[in-house]
Amino acid sequence: MSKRNVRALKGRPGPLRKGANGGEPRVRAADMLSHALGLFAEVGFANATVKAIAKAAGVNPALIYYYYANKEALFVEALRYAINMAIEGQDGMGIIERTADPAAVIRFWFEKNRQLASPLSQMLKLMIEYRTAGRRIPAVEKLISQFYDAEVLLLARAIRRGIKIGQFRRVDVDRTAIFVSTHLDGLVVSATVRPAVNMARSISHLERVLFDYLGAAAEAVPSAPVGRLQHTVPATRS
């Protein structure tokens, strides 16, 4: 098996070295993935070309083929990149979860999702295409599971702790957490296929529905933690 095919199977870029135009190779690879993510999300796997992605990233197509064996390998890495960005956003919740009350944790989680509306939309588009194409790549399957498991666990912990301290009324914690996570995906997809739908406003509606159900008020999120989270998530092309 060639080295190029081994790289494709492992889902890793090739040896990192200076590109023809200079710059750190890891940064250049991330930039290519960011542009690939945007184009795959915009026109789909079938219509996106390596040439178009290279043009958007300002590199020679040969450089993309240096890192990725083919367009499918690039697609897999773009999906992995999108999921990893979302997981980084989840990691930022750890600070808030350890220092804030349960309602503040949930409010901050909703605010984080409002901020990440564009990359979340791109991630879901790629996930849907990945599923409908019948692709089953273990590393990607693991990343998808990790993302959703972490999301549901965070919500469940906050709701359970809120019930324990009397902040929320008693509810079925796990079912409520899964309901919110699932409906958030539905809102993102709806806003993607229906341009008239305001995603941020829809997420706020879901937030109010949850707090009404829990018997608590959805207060405003403090501005300082929100600013801190913005620095933990790389910007992506919408």
Rank of each mutant, 00 (worst) to 15 (best):
V43T: 11
V50Q: 10
G215E: 02
E42N: 00
A8V: 01
V193Y: 12
I159H: 10
A41V: 02
V193L: 13
E77K: 02
I106S: 07
K164L: 14
I137F: 11
R237C: 04
K3W: 13
D31Y: 02
P25I: 00
H183P: 05
P61H: 02
P225V: 03
D174Y: 07
D149L: 09
I83F: 10
Y65I: 02
K142C: 05
L206M: 10
V152W: 05
G44W: 05
L39Q: 04
G14E: 11
Y81E: 12
A220C: 01
A235T: 00
N70L: 01
S204T: 10
R175G: 09
Y67P: 04
S2G: 12
T232N: 08
P195S: 12
E129T: 01
E77F: 03
A41Y: 03
F110L: 05
I137D: 12
G92Y: 13
V197Y: 09
A150F: 10
V76K: 06
L9G: 08
A224C: 01
N70V: 00
L39Y: 00
Y130I: 04
R136F: 06
A235L: 04
I163D: 11
L143H: 09
L120F: 02
A177W: 05
V193I: 15
E141Q: 14
L9T: 11
L206W: 08
Q90F: 13
V188Q: 06
F179T: 09
G89S: 07
G19K: 01
I144W: 00
R28E: 07
I178C: 02
A139E: 15
V50I: 15
V140M: 10
E88H: 12
D101E: 12
F45S: 03
S190R: 15
L214W: 08
K71W: 01
K71Y: 01
P222R: 05
F110D: 08
I178L: 09
T99A: 08
G94H: 13
S2K: 09
K18V: 10
V189N: 03
A52L: 08
H231D: 12
Y81K: 07
D91H: 15
A218Q: 09
V226G: 06
V189D: 05
V188T: 15
A100E: 11
M127I: 06
A52S: 12
S190T: 11
N47T: 03
E42Q: 13
A218Y: 06
L16Y: 09
V76L: 06
K18D: 10
S145A: 13
S121F: 00
A200M: 04
A57W: 07
R135L: 15
R157L: 09
V6N: 10
L229I: 13
Q90I: 14
E24P: 04
